[in-house]
Simulated assay, not measured.
Amino acid sequence: MNLKIMKFRMKILVLIVFIIAAFGVLNVCNTLYKKANVVKVTVPEGYTYEEVGKSLQNAGLVTQKDFINEVENWSDNNYWFLKGVPNDKHKLDGFLFPATYSFQKDATSKVIISKMLETFEFNMKSNKDYITKNKLNIRNVVIEASLVEKEAAKDIDRAKIASVIQNRLAIKMPLQIDATIIYIIGDKKKLYNKDLAVKSPYNTYLNKGLPPSPICNPGTKSINAAVHPAKTNYIFYVLNSKTNEHVFAKTYAQHIKNVAKYIK
């Protein structure tokens, strides 16, 4: 073989090896850069979108203000569960799925919201067919789940609290859920009669039926409870602060006894 040709081929081979090596180095650097610029953030069950925004800001991602603005002006309806949801600032309430996420430091609010909605969709796979088959209103399911999320102290109570909500709705009785009052006025250790009288569509003491939108973003367990509530005749419940579990009653007379026993 011609010596010049051999030298040329050798140069080509060396060049190819150099390119492959350089590409490998760049790929490794790019991977390391991405890992170094990943931010993990945990969104707990029961957060409002304002609280989610604050968590994202504290984690060094987007500002709370920017996140809230993106949530309240969301326009992407390419999700089955957003069909028919009123197009207002509460549109995404209940659908920003609580979980631990990993985002690039430069992720936008839109990217973050899209990921949360995709995660909600993924976690609803097991319930979607049931919801569709039984013609359940997904927004109402999530509203109920948000009430369960805020009321239930332990998992054992979730399905039973959901049953109370369903039973009260069936007899057109006000839900009288304290969590809706706290949603209106802010967190308080104790609620007074004046708090229960605050005028708001979210006040379930003054208004019958469900509040107009979820009061938080519920987790899977609360959503499952809302989709499959326990079959009970319970109408009332009160928290046993010693066990952190609720005590349920079918009658008002029994409820009064429970209140006297467990509320000191």
Rank of each mutant, 00 (worst) to 15 (best):
23 F>I: 14
43 V>F: 10
208 K>Q: 13
141 V>W: 01
111 V>R: 14
251 T>D: 06
254 Q>E: 13
166 Q>P: 00
29 C>D: 06
68 I>Y: 01
18 F>D: 02
98 P>C: 12
52 V>H: 00
38 V>R: 06
164 V>Y: 06
123 N>R: 06
50 E>P: 00
58 N>P: 10
136 L>H: 03
226 A>C: 09
254 Q>I: 02
61 L>T: 04
105 K>Q: 15
169 L>I: 03
143 I>N: 04
41 V>M: 11
246 H>Q: 04
46 G>C: 11
254 Q>W: 00
152 A>D: 01
216 C>W: 01
239 L>V: 05
155 D>E: 14
112 I>F: 14
121 E>R: 07
7 K>A: 14
188 K>R: 12
264 K>G: 15
113 I>V: 13
147 L>H: 05
41 V>N: 06
88 D>F: 06
243 T>V: 01
116 M>F: 07
236 F>G: 00
176 Q>L: 07
164 V>T: 12
18 F>T: 09
12 I>Q: 08
186 G>W: 10
151 E>C: 09
54 K>L: 15
40 K>L: 08
70 E>P: 02
113 I>Q: 06
234 Y>Q: 07
1 M>T: 11
195 D>W: 09
36 A>W: 09
188 K>L: 04
44 P>Y: 11
186 G>Y: 11
220 T>F: 13
31 T>M: 08
67 F>E: 00
76 D>W: 02
115 K>I: 14
150 K>C: 05
220 T>R: 12
113 I>A: 04
2 N>T: 08
68 I>G: 00
139 R>E: 05
199 K>R: 07
179 A>M: 05
196 L>M: 08
118 E>Y: 10
112 I>C: 11
152 A>L: 03
164 V>M: 05
137 N>D: 15
210 L>R: 03
123 N>L: 01
116 M>E: 10
154 K>R: 08
53 G>A: 03
141 V>G: 04
117 L>E: 00
208 K>V: 14
142 V>E: 02
8 F>Y: 13
220 T>Q: 13
127 N>R: 05
235 I>V: 11
203 N>P: 02
65 K>T: 14
191 L>N: 08
221 K>S: 11
219 G>N: 10
194 K>N: 07
181 I>P: 02
262 Y>C: 00
237 Y>R: 02
262 Y>A: 00
94 G>V: 15
164 V>Q: 10
123 N>D: 03
95 F>G: 01
116 M>C: 09
82 L>K: 08
197 A>T: 13
25 V>A: 15
223 I>E: 03
111 V>G: 01
22 A>C: 12
49 Y>C: 07
126 S>N: 08
87 N>F: 01
162 A>E: 07
92 L>T: 07
25 V>N: 04
160 K>F: 11
166 Q>L: 07
64 Q>S: 10
33 Y>S: 12
21 A>S: 14
114 S>G: 06
134 N>K: 07
